[in-house]
Design a protein around this nucleic acid. Structure first.
Lengths: 181, 181
DNA sequence: TCTAATGTTTAGTACTTTTAAAACACTCTA
DNA sequence: TAGAGTGTTTTAAAAGTACTAAACATTAGA
């Protein structure tokens, strides 16, 4: 029976790994989160390494990444030299932080690329159909990015995630109150 | 001067490649989209390969992926055996399709993982604190996923992207009418 | 049916990423 | 200050991915 709980946990942890991988992070980041998410309390770096059967060097690197992403927190235990970690249980917090980071990076990068392009086009003395077309396209992409950025920033600025708030927007009276967690 | 337009285009195309890479797709998919997005008309597979200086085998594979993602469309020219491609100019359409695919895949996968876990826990005859805790956590994640899924589905079901609709939601009177494109 | 034009698939190479193991560094206690 | 217990960094190898060139397949016209 104890064995079966481990089986279930392993399946879940592996799933988290696949999701992390899908989001472009190391699968071990997902494993760590999955393991800690199911833990009622914290685990030391060594225990995490042992549980996941991964070298402690690997855990050292990936737990730091998980921390940076706001997925896990370091916990101090007085009189103990080990580092303990526990999962951030609020999933909206986790997703929000990760998405925000990506959002910012991508938006800034894309805008920079477009701005550089438009500036370059401005400097051309020629004004061929080609040049005018390129300018038009860059401007279209620029305003699209500004719109989506505003939308996503709006979503991410919500402190709490209320179930299906966006969908309910045109029918505000029907807003379902809250979501557990 | 013609030379400078090429420089600008190259910068933009490369930027699209980096974004594609960031989203977990092959950078060449981004290059292809970038090249075609700046093109007033269509290009043949061979021209694309020549412009991007990439083997046609590579373009063959990645243009198919770009097509699958709704980023480019094949254009038929009668009396011409070549395949021509052009970019989907509506960026909202592109993002929507890509996001939808990811959303669906990830959501279904995560829900499946959780359901399998909960079913496994159900079968355990033991009911330790550990088991109850795992059950609680899986349920929390499940309802979180359902909420976010509803929100994202709602967003993606919009036919047109109106600038900053979400942010403006609490102040509907200030909704900026439309976005170009 | 032969040839030329085009797109697709394959096989091997090159490149990139991930990993474990080991060396290293730090800190606390005796 | 020696030694044990921890976490971090480095390094070399393994695993995975992407790319080109070439072989292959398909089609259309001569």
């Amino acid at each position: 029976m104890e064995d079966s709980l481990v089986t279930v946990e392993t399946g879940f942890i592996d799933g988290m790994g696949q999701l992390a991988d899908y989001w472009g992070y190391n699968k071990v980041v997902g494993w760590i989160y999955g393991l800690l998410y199911l833990q009622d309390g914290s685990l030391s770096l060594e225990s995490v390494a042992a549980e996941l059967q991964v070298s402690k060097g690997n855990i050292s690197i990936n737990v730091r990444e998980a921390e940076r992403l706001g997925m896990v927190k370091k916990v101090w235990k007085k009189g103990d030299r080990k580092d303990y970690y526990e999962a951030e249980p609020n999933l909206w917090q986790v997703i929000r932080r990760i998405t925000r980071e990506r959002q910012k990076k991508e938006f800034d990068f894309a805008m920079e690329t477009i701005k550089t392009g438009l500036d370059g086009l401005e400097l051309l003395e020629s004004n061929t159909q080609q040049v005018r077309f390129a300018r038009k396209r860059l401007n279209q992409m620029s305003s699209f990015l500004k719109s989506t950025n505003a939308i996503i920033s709006g979503l991410l600025s919500l402190e709490t995630l209320k179930g299906a708030a966006v969908q309910a927007c045109p029918v505000r009276s029907r807003l379902p109150g809250r979501t557990s967690d």
